[in-house]
Protein backbone atom coordinates (compact mmCIF):
# COMPACT_ATOMS: atom_id res chain seq x y z
CA UNK A 1 0.00 0.00 0.00
CA UNK A 2 1.61 3.23 -1.12
CA UNK A 3 1.49 6.64 0.45
CA UNK A 4 -1.65 8.63 -0.34
CA UNK A 5 -1.28 11.98 -2.08
CA UNK A 6 -2.86 13.69 0.92
CA UNK A 7 -0.21 12.22 3.17
CA UNK A 8 2.52 13.22 0.78
CA UNK A 9 1.17 16.76 0.64
CA UNK A 10 0.99 16.98 4.40
CA UNK A 11 4.50 15.65 4.71
CA UNK A 12 5.76 18.15 2.20
CA UNK A 13 3.97 21.00 3.93
CA UNK A 14 5.33 19.99 7.26
CA UNK A 15 8.81 19.80 5.89
CA UNK A 16 8.53 23.15 4.16
CA UNK A 17 7.47 25.28 7.00
CA UNK A 18 4.46 27.35 7.88
CA UNK A 19 5.44 30.63 6.24
CA UNK A 20 6.36 29.16 2.87
CA UNK A 21 3.13 27.18 2.79
CA UNK A 22 1.08 30.27 3.50
CA UNK A 23 3.07 32.18 0.91
CA UNK A 24 2.39 29.49 -1.67
CA UNK A 25 -1.29 29.54 -0.84
CA UNK A 26 -1.33 33.28 -1.37
CA UNK A 27 0.55 32.86 -4.63
CA UNK A 28 -1.93 30.25 -5.79
CA UNK A 29 -4.81 32.55 -4.86
CA UNK A 30 -3.26 35.42 -6.79
CA UNK A 31 -2.53 33.30 -9.84
CA UNK A 32 -5.91 31.68 -10.09
CA UNK A 33 -7.88 34.89 -9.82
CA UNK A 34 -5.89 36.89 -12.29
CA UNK A 35 -5.49 34.85 -15.42
CA UNK A 36 -4.37 36.71 -18.50
CA UNK A 37 -5.43 34.54 -21.36
CA UNK A 38 -4.16 34.39 -24.94
CA UNK A 39 -7.11 33.41 -27.10
CA UNK A 40 -5.70 31.24 -29.87
CA UNK A 41 -8.97 31.36 -31.78
CA UNK A 42 -9.41 29.55 -35.05
CA UNK A 43 -12.92 28.28 -35.68
CA UNK A 44 -16.55 27.97 -34.54
CA UNK A 45 -15.68 27.73 -30.87
CA UNK A 46 -14.47 31.29 -31.23
CA UNK A 47 -18.08 32.39 -31.37
CA UNK A 48 -18.82 30.78 -28.03
CA UNK A 49 -15.59 32.22 -26.67
CA UNK A 50 -16.84 35.65 -27.66
CA UNK A 51 -20.16 34.96 -25.95
CA UNK A 52 -18.41 33.77 -22.80
CA UNK A 53 -16.19 36.81 -22.66
CA UNK A 54 -18.97 39.32 -23.23
CA UNK A 55 -21.72 40.72 -21.09
CA UNK A 56 -24.13 37.79 -20.81
CA UNK A 57 -21.75 35.16 -19.45
CA UNK A 58 -19.03 37.43 -18.25
CA UNK A 59 -15.62 35.83 -17.93
CA UNK A 60 -14.27 38.87 -16.13
CA UNK A 61 -16.12 37.90 -12.97
CA UNK A 62 -13.63 35.08 -12.55
CA UNK A 63 -10.67 37.33 -12.99
CA UNK A 64 -9.93 35.91 -16.41
CA UNK A 65 -11.35 38.69 -18.53
CA UNK A 66 -8.17 40.40 -19.57
CA UNK A 67 -7.22 39.34 -23.06
CA UNK A 68 -3.54 39.61 -23.87
CA UNK A 69 -2.67 39.33 -27.51
CA UNK A 70 0.96 38.68 -26.93
CA UNK A 71 2.18 35.34 -25.61
CA UNK A 72 4.84 37.08 -23.56
CA UNK A 73 2.16 38.79 -21.48
CA UNK A 74 -0.21 35.87 -21.08
CA UNK A 75 -0.20 32.98 -18.69
CA UNK A 76 -3.13 30.98 -20.07
CA UNK A 77 -3.15 29.69 -23.61
CA UNK A 78 -6.78 29.22 -24.55
CA UNK A 79 -6.78 27.07 -27.67
CA UNK A 80 -10.17 27.63 -29.24
CA UNK A 81 -11.20 25.76 -32.35
CA UNK A 82 -9.73 23.18 -34.69
CA UNK A 83 -5.97 23.01 -35.02
CA UNK A 84 -4.86 21.76 -38.40
CA UNK A 85 -1.52 20.28 -39.31
CA UNK A 86 -0.63 23.54 -41.02
CA UNK A 87 -1.29 25.53 -37.86
CA UNK A 88 0.26 23.16 -35.33
CA UNK A 89 3.83 24.56 -35.58
CA UNK A 90 2.44 28.04 -34.97
CA UNK A 91 0.67 26.76 -31.85
CA UNK A 92 3.89 25.23 -30.59
CA UNK A 93 5.80 28.44 -31.24
CA UNK A 94 3.23 30.51 -29.35
CA UNK A 95 3.33 28.06 -26.43
CA UNK A 96 7.12 28.17 -26.34
CA UNK A 97 7.07 31.95 -26.29
CA UNK A 98 4.97 32.09 -23.16
CA UNK A 99 6.76 32.56 -19.85
CA UNK A 100 6.36 30.25 -16.86
CA UNK A 101 3.99 29.71 -15.10
CA UNK A 102 1.66 28.88 -17.95
CA UNK A 103 -1.41 26.76 -18.40
CA UNK A 104 -3.25 25.49 -21.45
CA UNK A 105 -6.97 24.99 -21.84
CA UNK A 106 -8.27 22.92 -24.74
CA UNK A 107 -11.58 24.54 -25.67
CA UNK A 108 -13.89 22.47 -27.80
CA UNK A 109 -13.78 18.87 -28.95
CA UNK A 110 -11.61 19.66 -31.95
CA UNK A 111 -8.76 20.59 -29.64
CA UNK A 112 -9.50 17.76 -27.24
CA UNK A 113 -9.51 14.97 -29.80
CA UNK A 114 -9.88 16.24 -33.32
CA UNK A 115 -13.65 16.41 -32.96
CA UNK A 116 -15.76 15.36 -35.91
CA UNK A 117 -12.78 15.82 -38.25
CA UNK A 118 -10.82 12.60 -38.45
CA UNK A 119 -8.85 13.20 -41.63
CA UNK A 120 -5.58 14.10 -43.24
CA UNK A 121 -5.61 17.74 -42.23
CA UNK A 122 -6.58 17.94 -38.56
CA UNK A 123 -4.48 17.32 -35.45
CA UNK A 124 -6.31 14.72 -33.35
CA UNK A 125 -6.07 16.54 -30.08
CA UNK A 126 -3.62 19.29 -29.24
CA UNK A 127 -2.10 17.26 -26.42
CA UNK A 128 0.09 15.68 -29.08
CA UNK A 129 1.63 19.12 -29.58
CA UNK A 130 1.54 20.88 -26.22
CA UNK A 131 0.65 19.77 -22.66
CA UNK A 132 -2.94 20.53 -21.69
CA UNK A 133 -4.30 21.31 -18.22
CA UNK A 134 -8.06 21.42 -18.68
CA UNK A 135 -10.16 19.92 -21.48
CA UNK A 136 -13.50 21.56 -22.21
CA UNK A 137 -15.57 19.33 -24.49
CA UNK A 138 -18.49 20.49 -26.58
CA UNK A 139 -19.10 21.38 -30.16
CA UNK A 140 -19.17 24.23 -29.34
CA UNK A 141 -19.36 24.11 -25.54
CA UNK A 142 -22.03 26.24 -23.96
CA UNK A 143 -20.67 29.27 -22.12
CA UNK A 144 -21.68 27.67 -18.83
CA UNK A 145 -19.48 24.70 -19.67
CA UNK A 146 -16.60 27.04 -20.40
CA UNK A 147 -17.05 28.78 -17.08
CA UNK A 148 -17.12 25.39 -15.38
CA UNK A 149 -13.84 24.60 -17.12
CA UNK A 150 -12.35 27.83 -15.86
CA UNK A 151 -13.43 27.01 -12.31
CA UNK A 152 -11.71 23.64 -12.61
CA UNK A 153 -8.59 25.34 -13.88
CA UNK A 154 -8.67 27.71 -10.95
CA UNK A 155 -8.99 24.78 -8.58
CA UNK A 156 -6.07 23.10 -10.27
CA UNK A 157 -3.95 26.22 -9.94
CA UNK A 158 -4.87 26.54 -6.32
CA UNK A 159 -3.87 22.98 -5.53
CA UNK A 160 -0.76 22.63 -7.59
CA UNK A 161 2.74 23.15 -6.33
CA UNK A 162 3.46 26.81 -6.96
CA UNK A 163 6.73 27.27 -8.75
CA UNK A 164 8.49 30.30 -7.33
CA UNK A 165 11.84 29.13 -6.16
CA UNK A 166 13.50 29.04 -9.54
CA UNK A 167 17.18 28.49 -9.35
CA UNK A 168 17.07 26.37 -6.22
CA UNK A 169 18.01 22.79 -6.63
CA UNK A 170 14.99 20.97 -5.14
Amino acid sequence: MGVSPGAKRTARHMSEGYLTTKFENALGWAREFSLFHYPFVTACCGMEYMSTACAHFDLDRFGAGLTRFSPRQADLLLVVGTITMKLAPVLKTVYDQMAEPKWVVAFGTCTVSGGIYDNYAVVQGIDSVIPVDVYIPGCPPRPETVLDGFLKLQEKIRRQKQEWRWGRKD
Binding site: M85, K86, P89, K92, D118, N119, Y120, V123
Partner: peptide, 29 residues
Protein backbone atom coordinates in the same frame (compact mmCIF):
# COMPACT_ATOMS: atom_id res chain seq x y z
CA UNK B 1 -2.24 22.38 -47.60
CA UNK B 2 1.11 23.10 -46.04
CA UNK B 3 4.40 23.17 -47.92
CA UNK B 4 5.89 19.74 -47.91
CA UNK B 5 2.57 17.94 -48.10
CA UNK B 6 2.80 15.10 -50.57
CA UNK B 7 -0.10 13.96 -52.64
CA UNK B 8 -3.38 15.39 -53.74
CA UNK B 9 -6.05 14.87 -51.06
CA UNK B 10 -9.28 15.07 -53.05
CA UNK B 11 -8.24 12.41 -55.53
CA UNK B 12 -10.17 9.24 -54.95
CA UNK B 13 -7.05 7.16 -54.29
CA UNK B 14 -5.90 9.36 -51.40
CA UNK B 15 -7.21 7.80 -48.18
CA UNK B 16 -9.18 10.12 -45.91
CA UNK B 17 -7.19 9.39 -42.79
CA UNK B 18 -3.66 9.23 -44.05
CA UNK B 19 -1.50 11.29 -41.75
CA UNK B 20 1.82 12.66 -42.89
CA UNK B 21 4.06 13.34 -39.93
CA UNK B 22 5.05 16.94 -40.07
CA UNK B 23 8.50 17.68 -38.77
CA UNK B 24 8.92 21.09 -37.29
CA UNK B 25 12.46 21.97 -36.27
CA UNK B 26 13.05 18.42 -35.15
CA UNK B 27 9.81 18.00 -33.20
CA UNK B 28 7.58 15.53 -34.97
CA UNK B 29 3.89 16.43 -34.85
Amino acid sequence: MYDGFEGFPLRKDYPLRRRQPKADKGNAI
